[in-house]
Design a protein around this nucleic acid. Structure first.
Lengths: 185, 185
DNA sequence: ACCTGAACACCGTTCAAGT
DNA sequence: ACCTGAACACCGTTCAAGT
């Protein structure tokens, strides 16, 4: 018996969440709207409300998925780095290179959301806490004392996200030079 | 003859633009919506369309007003500073102090908008261009050569905005310490 | 268990009509 | 010149009904 081709593959919540995060990245913090998402997934918007209480519910679950994935990522990136300085350079490179990494747009949309959305602010705080701790630990391994390492980690992430917020033509050489100052090379 | 009290003071476009910028600051880049604004201004939304072609038109004129005011501000703040280092410290202080300055929320909303809105991206680019040039000039006056001054200016603004994007509890002492590194004190 | 289809409220936009 | 009021389209939300 032939397996049915192009049968409608009843969705699970994960498909909506994936689509929501993609929409946030592509269109900013106001995106992830029910009807456009339904159109993209080729179902009626009514079906959305089987999987989610409302749009807010979708947002919260997308935020939870984002938070988990970013915390897993920073742990993997810093977990057993043989050379702390090389690990720091690699991390900075990830975000300061053009073209921007795939996840940066989602991250900036979520940070924008965080200014007016408590759940988003909380997810960002969790992720930043883990990242700052991990990066501070790397700086400490390069020889800085605990306080100096924390301040460096703060400078590291402030620069990293601030640089992605700056308008105008991308000044690659100057960004690299500023990154060098952040690493105190 | 008594002057009429509480007569409806027919609005001009400026009133809508003021309200739009306030809404952006208070509710983020998705705010500045026609009907809520009309409610706040106590007119029908139909009257909006006398002053503006559409919501996009309002946004563009609000962006123009923001751009002009920010460029005027940075010129005033750096125009004839007797001590370049003191001027840099004062500028950094403006944005790194808690509570955040009134204009920061508007600025972050516009920067979020800029990722998906060409006119906003252009306004941000104009403002950043002027700010980077002015702050680079201050760094140059402290003794840096032109290239180093530009890189410092980039680090300065990247840190300034990035720091406002970081979540979690505000670490005032560490922000001050990181700011010191930015100024290379 | 998962989805459709119709309903209603909210907001962007248009426009004829008022003052 | 500036505004109202009614109309319509779009999207969030609900819900009875289908499979």
């Amino acid at each position: 018996m032939a397996k049915r081709v192009s049968t409608k593959p009843r969705l699970d919540a994960g498909a909506w969440i994936d689509a929501a995060l993609a929409a946030l990245g592509a269109e900013g913090p106001g995106a992830a709207r029910v009807e456009p998402l339904a159109k993209r997934l080729a179902v009626t918007k009514g079906s959305f409300y089987w999987h989610f209480r409302d749009r807010e519910d979708l947002l919260c679950r997308a935020l939870a998925r984002w938070q988990d994935s970013r915390i897993a990522a920073i742990r993997e990136q810093t977990g057993n780095a043989p050379d702390p300085r090389a690990a720091l350079v690699a991390l900075l490179d990830l975000y300061t290179r053009a073209p921007n990494p795939k996840g940066l747009a989602v991250e900036l949309a979520i940070r924008a959301l965080a200014r007016n959305h408590a759940a988003a602010a909380d997810a960002v705080a969790q992720v930043d806490g883990e990242r700052l701790a991990r990066v501070a630990a790397l700086f400490a391994r390069t020889g800085l004392d605990a306080e100096a390492a924390q301040a460096r980690a703060l400078l590291f992430y402030a620069f990293l996200f601030g640089q992605s917020l700056l308008g105008g033509r991308r000044q690659t050489a100057r960004i690299a030079e500023a990154a060098r100052m952040v690493l105190a090379t």
